[in-house]
Amino acid sequence: MVGGGGGPGLADFQPGDPRLGRGDRSSKILGPLRAEGGRGVLVATASTFIVIGLIVFAVLHSAHWLEFKQAFFNAKVLGDSFPDILRAFRRNIVYFLIAEPVILVLALLLAVMRSLPGPVFFPLRVIATIYVDMFRGIPTILVIYLLGFGVPALQIPGLPTSAIPWALLGLVLSYSAYVAEVYRAGIESVHPSQAAAARSLGLGRWQTLRFVIVPQAVRRVVPPLLNDFIALQKDTALIAVVSGVAPEAFLESQIYQAATFNFTPVLGAAICFLVITLPLTRFTDWLVGRQRKKRQSGAAL
């Protein structure tokens, strides 16, 4: 997902948004089946086999299937390249593990800065707003390219001269802007009466944010935050544009692809990402479904 396009905007995550309900997908698919009983399951199974069978048949008998198979699903090329790609993929994981905690903290800071009330904090609000607007508006790959190639070229003493730390910083800067908006949506979704109750007890603005507003906000935005985790895990591949001597999975697969004139290694890299992102996606959906159920039962009380 080039350019962090997967990063969610504010509008995407108003709690109570019906789209958050996507999480219940599995039960939405299976729910009607259960209701229809054994016959429904039978029909579903049969029609699934027929549809998939038709697709497979169409693909296998298409004019260029063999060339296609050769270029993208070459078992020998995959076998030769996959161990190295997998090794390189460890870098993606490390990048993710370094970037994510920094993003979570920086973004929360930005969101709180934007939420501070009162004229005294006007400059902080402006700074945070400009930051978020800027980095949401620039493609992530551009930020990574600029920092990863640009800053080491300056040869400033005391600063890292390798591209990777700077590329990581680019990823962090860009994602913090998105995640800050997720947090902010959470903060704004906490009803003003909560702040009024806290202030009426004598808690200050800062105490109200810290003990009453932010804890509730963070709980509400866990699912969208997980979505951003997934996007970030994928976007570690963007570091490929500057990673040179320390290739991550995507660049490693490109190296093999260039050597073999075959695209199967890139598919291998894709598999690496899927192994991580698929379970995370399922988990996020499950969590969203659970939260929605909780909310509904809470409303019924």
């Binding site: 009466s193 806290a198 009426s200 004598g202 804890p215 509730q216 709980r219």
Partner: peptide, 30 residues
């Protein structure tokens, strides 16, 4: 505000805290 307690129509308890913590938050922090 410390000297004047106010109770609202809509309760406005803090939903992420236990009853005990709802009561002790302001005394411990303020």
């Amino acid at each position: 505000r410390r000297q004047i307690g106010i109770v609202f129509q809509s309760f406005n308890l803090f939903p992420h805290m236990t009853v005990r913590r709802n009561i002790t938050l302001a005394p411990t922090r303020v």
